[in-house]
Amino acid sequence: MKKTLLITVSMLLLLVVSTTNVKAQEWSTGLDIYSSYLWRGAKFGTGAAFQPGVEFSAGGFAIGAWGSYSTGSEEAAEADLYMGYGFDLGENASLSFTLTDYYFPGSDWTEGESHYFEPMVSLGVGAFTFTAAYMEGLGDDEINTTSDLYLEAAVSAGPVDITLGGGDGQYTDNGDFNICNIMVGTSKEVQITESFTLPVSGAVMLNPSTGGFHIAVGISL
């Protein structure tokens, strides 16, 4: 519990320090509704997934909360906290660092073994994005204790986004590093009225390691 609270307090302190004397501050919130919750080669829960988010940003800094709640019998609820900072490198390039606290409702939030922490770095160069993430669990048993690496390369090719990801641990069938996420996605704006459009996105995802294949579509509000 002490470790969890220490990290949470550190996130809040970083928020205070980062927003001092920064004029461009913004609060934002939204809700995505997907036919299924797909993430890094896996499908979570059953039924449609409602995914709310709240974020505060100031300059290149952002801190927020994001969740996913499925409507089926297997809810696979998730409620995460995150903070990050992005740098504009110029020449259509960017670099960002993110720390995410993954939490799955149903266990005591104040207990350390209920959390999984993941530092992540992403480098964007033109239409390409390269991401590396390392998830570490804080549990005292084999179920909650994880040390999983995930690497991803993505490219935007006109209206289509193509993703290739590889990982170990939870991402593959035997825990060894392997390709676990091949995804092709697209999005468009649906004109509802003269002044309102509805963002719609869809993706096809294959995990060669587990043999899982899924399709999902969603809207953003």
Rank of each mutant, 00 (worst) to 15 (best):
T4C: 05
T4P: 01
L5G: 12
L5D: 15
T8I: 12
V9S: 13
L13E: 11
S18H: 09
S18F: 13
T19F: 07
A24K: 15
A24Y: 12
W27A: 06
D32S: 13
D32R: 12
I33T: 09
S36T: 12
L38E: 04
R40T: 01
R40C: 00
A42P: 03
T46D: 13
G47S: 04
G47R: 05
G47C: 02
A48T: 06
A48S: 10
A49N: 10
A49T: 14
F50D: 08
G53S: 13
F56Y: 14
G59N: 02
G59A: 03
G59T: 03
G60H: 00
I63S: 06
G64V: 06
G67M: 02
Y69D: 05
T71M: 09
E75C: 12
A79Q: 11
A79K: 04
L81N: 05
L81R: 03
G84R: 02
G84W: 03
Y85G: 01
Y85D: 06
Y85M: 00
N92R: 14
A93V: 02
S94P: 03
S96N: 09
S96E: 04
F97N: 00
F97E: 02
T98M: 05
T98L: 08
L99A: 07
F104E: 10
P105N: 14
G106K: 06
G106Y: 07
H115N: 12
F117G: 04
P119F: 04
L123M: 07
L123K: 02
L123R: 01
L123N: 09
A127L: 08
T131M: 14
A132S: 15
A133F: 01
Y134C: 02
Y134R: 07
M135C: 10
M135Q: 14
E136I: 15
G137L: 00
D141T: 13
N144C: 06
T145N: 15
T145G: 11
T145K: 15
T146Y: 08
S147T: 12
L149I: 14
A157H: 05
P159Q: 11
T163W: 01
G165R: 01
G167I: 00
G169F: 00
Q170H: 10
Q170E: 14
Y171D: 04
D173C: 02
G175I: 03
D176F: 08
N178I: 00
M183C: 13
V184E: 06
G185Y: 04
K188C: 08
V190P: 00
V190I: 14
Q191G: 12
T193L: 04
T193V: 01
F196Q: 11
T197Q: 13
L198Y: 01
P199H: 05
A203Q: 15
L206E: 11
L206H: 12
N207S: 05
N207C: 04
P208Y: 09
P208T: 09
S209D: 01
G211D: 05
G212N: 11
F213A: 13
H214C: 08
H214M: 09
H214T: 09
V217K: 00
I219V: 15
I219T: 15
L221C: 02
